[in-house]
């Protein structure tokens, strides 16, 4: 594994940077081909009270009077240095606005991933080792989870635990219980996909020769699971989770709306409503950065976890006949 790992890591990191830049460009293009000119419409809205002088300054700051390609180049140059621009709506730096809401979303995403893993592993173990009819019945749980929309789960949880049992006040969105149920709403959905992968992998690994040989060596079901089946079955979950990050970010928008939390999701929601393009551009690019980094991390960690994975380029491999 160690041979060629550094070149592999550098190559993957280089690809990651490229993907992030492309994602920024793609977002920029999508926004600039959108119909209408929300920028000037917002700026000239009398309610916002910009003076002509201010408008001219903002327009030249964004280079809106220049060709699109030049605009793209300048926006990209600012993005690379970490300057995300200024909100059209609140006139504050976008970086500050995002910085305010990110912690809340991180808490939600982290908690929901944790809950999702707990649920997924619980379901997968249950499927294998609970006696009939409970174990087999658990098999249908992931598809049930997948087929119920997230907002419905959220509304049900609020209905039962907030309005019904009075466990938390729906208005107080940042209380621990409210956070827990918000995370659960998001986590249920993520857990379903992880559980499906896990159940399928455990089934497959249990059929492998080595599982039978290990049992012939005197291992019981519990030790067989923990020592032998778990690791090869759980390794692909790393990849699944990395891909799921995008879904978690997307799901956060809905969950935050349902639970009335402030976060990246609510920021996206309000900036879409007010056509606050710099904020949208920044949030979408940020999502791309997170997605790419998480997947980069998964790619870099995987060869360290699975001894069979080699990081040598395919063409460098010697064909042994």
């Amino acid at each position: 594994m160690s041979r060629g790992y550094l070149p592999f890591a550098l190559r993957r990191a280089g690809q990651a940077v490229l993907v992030i830049l492309l994602a920024y460009v793609a977002t920029f293009v999508v926004i600039s081909v959108l119909p209408g000119d929300p920028v000037t419409a917002t700026l000239r809205n009398p309610q916002n009270g910009f003076t002509e002088e201010q408008i001219a300054r903002i327009v030249s700051y964004y280079g809106l009077d220049r060709p699109v390609l030049v605009q793209l180049w300048e926006a990209l140059s600012r993005f690379v240095t970490g300057d995300l621009g200024v909100s059209l709506r609140s006139n504050r730096p976008v970086a500050d606005m995002i910085g305010e809401v990110v912690p809340s979303t991180l808490v939600l995403a982290g908690a929901s991933l944790g809950l999702a893993l707990l649920l997924a592993f619980g379901i997968a173990f249950g499927v294998r080792y609970l006696p009939r009819p409970f174990g087999p019945a658990l098999r249908s749980v992931p598809s049930l989870f997948l087929s119920v929309p997230g907002f419905l789960v959220g509304l049900l949880l609020i209905q039962i635990f907030s309005f019904g049992l009075g466990l938390f006040r729906a208005i107080d969105a940042d209380s621990p219980w409210a956070t827990f149920f918000a995370a659960l709403t998001l986590g249920v959905w993520v857990s379903a996909q992880v559980a499906e992968v896990l159940i399928a992998n455990l089934d497959r690994e249990a059929e492998q020769d080595y599982a039978g040989v290990a049992r012939a060596r005197g291992l019981g079901q519990a030790r067989l699971l923990l020592r032998h089946l778990l690791k090869p079955s759980a390794l692909p979950v790393v990849t699944v989770l990395a891909v799921m990050i995008g879904e978690v970010l997307g799901g956060a928008v809905i969950t935050e709306a349902v639970f009335g939390r402030t976060g990246l999701g609510s920021l996206v929601e309000s900036s879409v409503a007010s056509q606050d393009l710099p904020v949208l551009q920044a949030v979408v690019s940020l999502a791309a950065v997170v997605f790419v980094l998480v997947n980069l991390l998964a790619d870099l960690v995987y060869p360290l976890l699975d001894p069979r994975v080699t990081v040598v380029r395919p063409e460098a491999r010697v064909a042994v006949a």
Binding site: Q208, D209, Y210, V213, A214, R227, H228, K231, P232, L235, L305, D306, P307, R308
Partner: peptide, 8 residues
């Protein structure tokens, strides 16, 4: 070839 756990 298949009788030992490949990741241990």
């Amino acid at each position: 070839g298949n009788a030992l756990n490949p990741v241990r």
